[in-house]
Each structure stands twice: as C-alpha cells, then as structure tokens.
C-alpha cells in the first residue's frame, strides 16, 4: 500500500492527524456514535480499541508472510476476535464495574472497521514494530476524536463531565445529545472544522479494507 517504508515513529504520528482513522478515513463510525455520550465509557472503550488494534496489527504483521492470500481475512478476524475476547475477560476480572457499564461495546470492537482496516491495509505489508506503532497511532487518533465528541455531548446532554455535574442543576438537558443522531451532528461538525483547519489537502484514496459503517 505505501511506497516508501515508514519508520515506526512516522507510522504512529501520521495516524493522529494527517491520516486520522475517523476524520480522514471515516472508519469506526459505529462506535463513534454509540459510546460518546459518556466521557468515562468513551475513555475505556478507546483504551480497549487502541490495545486491540495495536496487538492485532503486531500479530498479523508477524504472520504476514505465512498467511495464505485466500484466507487472509478469515485469519485476521480470528486473531482480532481472540484479542478482543481476551480484553473482555481481563476487564471482567479486574474492572468489573466498568465492564458492566460498557456492556456489549467491548465485544463489538471485533467489528470495528479501524481494526480490520489497519490489519488489512497496513499490517499485511509492513514490519511488526511499524505495524504495532501504526495500530497504536490509529487507536490514539480514534481516541482523540471520540474524547472531543464525548466532551461536547456529555455536558450538553447530561450536564456532567466524567460523571461529575459541571453545569447548573437548572440546566435543561438536551436529550438529543444523548441519543445517536447527535453523534452524527457532532462528528460532522468536527470533520468540517478539521478539514477547514487542514487547508484543503487532497483526500487520499480510500484505504483497502474500508467498509461501510455497520
């Protein structure tokens, strides 16, 4: 996919802004809409996704020369699923309260387009350390966007930040901000502002492995 090999450092940093998976590649929209109404849940979700993306990319990059082309997607899903289930079990064992609050979202990391997009689009063709950094960067880039959106949605929708009330108690809660449609509005506004800020760099072609948000 990429002509010049990237250093691990470049692989990490370019995912934060230039190639941000949510803002530029428009991946991972499903969870961007679903979990961003509470900052705390968003944070745990982001940490989980970052770890899963990074370790899946590392594993697949280690195996990349051995994976038969015909079944590469299946193998990727298998490996991603294994990491996500491990994460779910670890959360259940060590952070039971948060695990309960996140409910099905942790398991749904398996279907997150970013994980698959990075393994198929990058880890399959790059060295393990670079792929690991790329996955880490994609996760952190995703987290930055989600945390900003959550930091707008939670105060407006529930009058709190990180569960602590920050707005006066007579604040009229915007129910719209709590439900999924406001995720679209917040995300669209964010992308608009980010694009304006970047000054119209041409959009790169859609990365391989991109799929419609499900």
């Amino acid at each position: 996919m990429s002509p010049a090999p990237l250093t691990p450092r470049q692989a990490f940093t370019r995912m934060l802004w230039e190639e941000n998976p949510v803002l530029v590649q428009i991946l991972g929209i499903c969870s961007t809409l679903a979990v961003t109404n509470l900052v705390k849940n968003t944070l745990i979700m982001c940490v989980g996704l970052t770890l899963c993306t990074a370790f899946s990319a590392l594993t697949i990059s280690l195996l990349r020369d051995r994976i038969p082309r015909q079944v590469r997607m299946m193998v990727q899903v298998l490996i991603i699923a294994a990491w996500v289930i491990v994460l779910k079990i670890v959360l259940d064992a060590f952070l039971p309260e948060i695990s309960r609050e996140l409910g099905p979202y942790v398991g749904l990391i398996i279907t997150n387009c970013i994980v698959m997009g990075r393994t198929e689009g990058f880890a399959m063709g790059n060295r393990p350390l670079t792929a690991f950094c790329d996955g880490l960067g994609a996760g952190v880039g995703y987290s930055l966007v989600l945390l900003v959106i959550a930091a707008v949605r939670e105060p407006l929708g529930l009058g709190s930040f990180f569960g602590i009330p920050v707005l006066p108690s007579d604040w009229t809660r915007w129910n719209l901000m709590v439900i999924a449609p406001s995720g679209f509005f917040a995300l669209a506004t964010f992308i608009w502002v980010a694009k304006a800020f970047k000054g119209g760099t041409p959009r790169p072609a859609a990365p391989a492995g991109a799929k419609p948000a499900a």
């Binding site: 051995r66 038969p68 079944v71 299946m74 699923a81 294994a82 289930i85 491990v86 079990i89």
Partner: peptide, 13 residues
Amino acid sequence: FTLAVTVVCGGLV
C-alpha cells in the same frame, strides 16, 4: 494454517 491459527487463538482465549 487456518486450523493452526484457530487452535492457537482458541487456546489463548
């Protein structure tokens, strides 16, 4: 190969 990956991933989980 697929079988081996399945066994390793299943074993890990």
